[in-house]
């Protein structure tokens, strides 16, 4: 990547972050939603830890990584809406006729989404702490969770951007998201210990990137982390994120075929 591309990435990221900070309603909604999940799921499932074999002391301890990861998925999967808006407004076309590199344009999306996901995750972790959650893995474990949620968010953000550029229909993004969010979350260990899941679900979860983020995060956050699990799932997420960003940069080409 050339220095020019790095500069451009920085300017474009700045633009996007400013835009978010200037839309307080959007900001509040993205931050309030995970709080509601934390409260609702926390109250609803409080007693599941009493099930034999659940293996966690308090449900809140178990729930915090679940909400962090679910929020990372649900907020990033709407990234395509922003891209659509930029297409409709003509902003994307304006940038595409300047010397800015396509890589810088896509990098800026990734950076902005990464920053948002990280901020959201930190807030959830802090709220959990306030509510009495315990993080035996310490700061190192929390950093792994943060990184895993950012990588997972990148996967969904890039995919959503690609869909936005290819289909250019809000309805498609809404449809795909409503269809995917809950199955992806519930076919993972977000809210329920894997040991208590039906075995077919457990097998599906093994191939679910949402679950990779949870396995990596939870393992690193435990008192006795299994670093093999952390590295294998984290590595898979990284590979998937790189592939998704590459693919979504490629979609500029097919977008330009249709303008």
């Amino acid at each position: 990547m050339s220095t020019e591309t790095l500069h451009q990435t920085w300017y474009m990221t700045q633009r996007q972050l400013m835009a978010i900070l200037r839309q307080p309603v959007f900001l509040v909604v993205t931050l309030v939603q995970p709080v509601i999940w934390l409260f609702l799921f926390g109250s609803l499932f409080r007693k599941v830890v009493e099930l034999p074999g659940f293996g966690a002391g308090s449900y809140l301890d178990y729930l915090v990584p679940g909400v962090v990861v679910m929020s990372a998925v649900s907020s990033n999967m709407w990234a395509g809406m922003g891209t659509l808006e930029e297409i409709e407004r003509g902003t994307l076309n304006r940038f595409l006729t300047t010397p800015v590199s396509r890589t810088a344009l896509m990098n800026a999306n990734v950076m902005q989404q990464g920053c948002s996901t990280a901020a959201q995750s930190v807030l959830i972790v802090l709220l959990g702490k306030l509510g009495g959650a315990d993080y035996p893995g310490g700061i190192g474990g929390l950093l792994v969770l943060l990184l895993a949620s950012v990588l997972l968010g990148t996967v969904f953000g890039a995919a959503s951007n690609a869909v936005g550029m290819l289909v250019r229909q809000r309805e498609s993004i809404i449809g795909i998201n409503s269809f995917l969010l809950l199955p992806l979350t519930f076919l993972s260990s977000a809210f329920m210990a894997p040991g208590l899941m039906p075995s077919w679900m457990r097998h599906v979860a093994d191939g679910n990137p949402v679950n990779w983020a949870l396995v990596a995060g939870r393992s690193a956050m435990s008192a006795d982390p299994d670093w093999g699990d952390v590295l294998s799932r984290g590595g898979a997420l990284l590979a998937l994120a790189v592939a998704a960003v590459w693919l979504s940069t490629r979609t500029f080409r097919s977008y330009q075929q249709s303008v």
Binding site: R15, R89, G90, R94
Partner: peptide
């Protein structure tokens, strides 16, 4: 271009 393209925010 025909469409503005300026960033509204």
């Amino acid at each position: 271009a025909q469409k503005s393209g300026a960033d509204p925010v």
